[in-house]
C-alpha cells in the first residue's frame, strides 16, 4: 500500500507551512500535537495522528529552538511517522521508534537552511551598497524559499520512496532494538524537562518544582488544575511583594503552604 500523491503533497506543504509559522507568526502549527492532528486529518485518521503527535509533543516539550540553535526536529518526524503509521497500521510505540531517528536526521535540513540564507544576507548587503533598496527586502522574502524547501523536500522524498522500505526495515529490526526504543520513548521527555529547568530560574524558585511534583505525583491533579494553583501562588507572591515592603498576610500564607510541602525558602 502506498500513499496517494495528493496526500504526500499536502503533508509536504504542511511541513513547509509549519516551519514558517514556527519561525515567524509563531501561532503554534509547529507543535507536534497540532501537527499530528492535521496530518491525521490529511491521512483520514485523525485519532492516530493525535495520539502519535501528542506522545511526541510530550517527549519534545522544552526542546525548542532559542537563539537559532538547531534542535531535533520532532515536527518533521511527526509528519513522516504519522503518515507511515496510518498507512501500515503501525502501533504508537513503533511510530515513536521511527520518529526518534527521523527527528535526529532532520536537524541537518534545519542547519542547511540557516546556512544557505547567509548567501542572501551577503546579496542584501551588496544591494544596499548599490542603492537597490527594494532588492534588499526581496532577499529577506527569498529566504522563505530555502526554509520551506528544507522541510518540503525531505518529507516529499521520504513519503514517496519510503513506504516499502520502512515496512521492511520495521519487520527486520530485532526485538531488543524496538523494545529499547519504546523504553527510550518513556525516558526521552527527561531531556525536555532538564532543558526547561536550565532556561528557568531554578535556583531562585526551586520550591515551585516541588509544588508541581507533589500535586502531580500525590494529588494526581490534571495539568490545567496545577497551572491554576501555580498562577494563584505566583500572583499572591508577586503582587504582595510589590504593594509594600513588608510581607503581607497573603505572602505569609503562600510561604506557609510552601513550608508544609517541605520547602525551605531561604532566598
Amino acid at each position: 500500500m502506498h500513499i496517494e500523491m495528493w496526500r504526500i503533497l499536502l503533508l509536504a506543504l504542511y511541513g513547509a507551512w509549519s516551519i514558517y509559522d514556527g519561525l515567524n507568526t509563531a501561532i503554534g502549527f509547529k507543535g507536534s500535537a497540532v501537527t499530528g492532528m492535521f496530518v491525521g486529518l490529511i491521512m483520514g485518521d485523525m485519532t492516530t495522528g493525535l495520539v502519535i503527535g501528542g506522545t511526541l509533543q510530550l517527549m519534545s516539550l522544552g526542546i525548542g529552538s532559542y537563539g537559532g540553535a538547531s534542535v531535533p526536529d520532532y515536527n518533521t518526524a511527526t509528519i513522516i511517522s504519522t503518515a507511515f503509521a496510518v498507512t501500515n497500521h503501525m502501533s504508537t510505540g513503533a511510530a515513536i521508534g521511527l520518529a526518534i531517528p527521523i527527528s535526529l536526521l532532520a536537524v541537518n535540513f534545519d542547519i542547511f537552511a540557516r546556512f544557505v540564507n547567509t548567501f542572501l544576507q551577503h546579496r542584501a548587503e551588496a544591494y544596499a551598497d548599490q542603492g537597490k533598496i527594494n532588492a534588499v527586502g526581496r532577499m529577506n522574502l527569498l529566504g522563505s524559499v530555502s526554509w520551506s524547501l528544507s522541510r518540503f523536500l525531505p518529507i516529499f522524498v521520504a513519503l514517496w520512496l519510503g513506504n516499502g522500505f520502512v515496512k521492511e526495515a520495521l519487520a527486520a529490526l530485532p526485538q531488543w532494538f524496538m523494545g529499547g526504543l519504546k523504553t527510550a520513548g518513556g525516558i526521552l521527555p527527561a531531556l525536555g524537562i532538564a532543558i526547561l529547568l536550565k532556561y528557568l530560574p531554578l535556583n531562585k524558585y526551586f520550591a515551585f518544582v516541588l509544588i508541581g511534583f507533589a500535586l502531580a505525583a500525590y494529588g494526581k491533579i490534571p495539568m490545567i488544575g496545577i497551572s491554576i494553583v501555580a498562577l494563584a501562588i505566583a500572583m499572591l507572591i508577586t503582587f504582595a511583594k510589590s504593594s509594600n515592603g513588608q510581607p503581607t498576610q497573603a505572602q505569609t500564607v503562600a510561604n506557609t503552604n510552601a513550608t508544609q510541602l517541605g520547602v525551605d525558602e531561604d532566598e
Partner: peptide
Amino acid sequence: LTVVGALI
C-alpha cells in the same frame, strides 16, 4: 517551574 515539576 511548577508545570515542569508536575511533568516529571
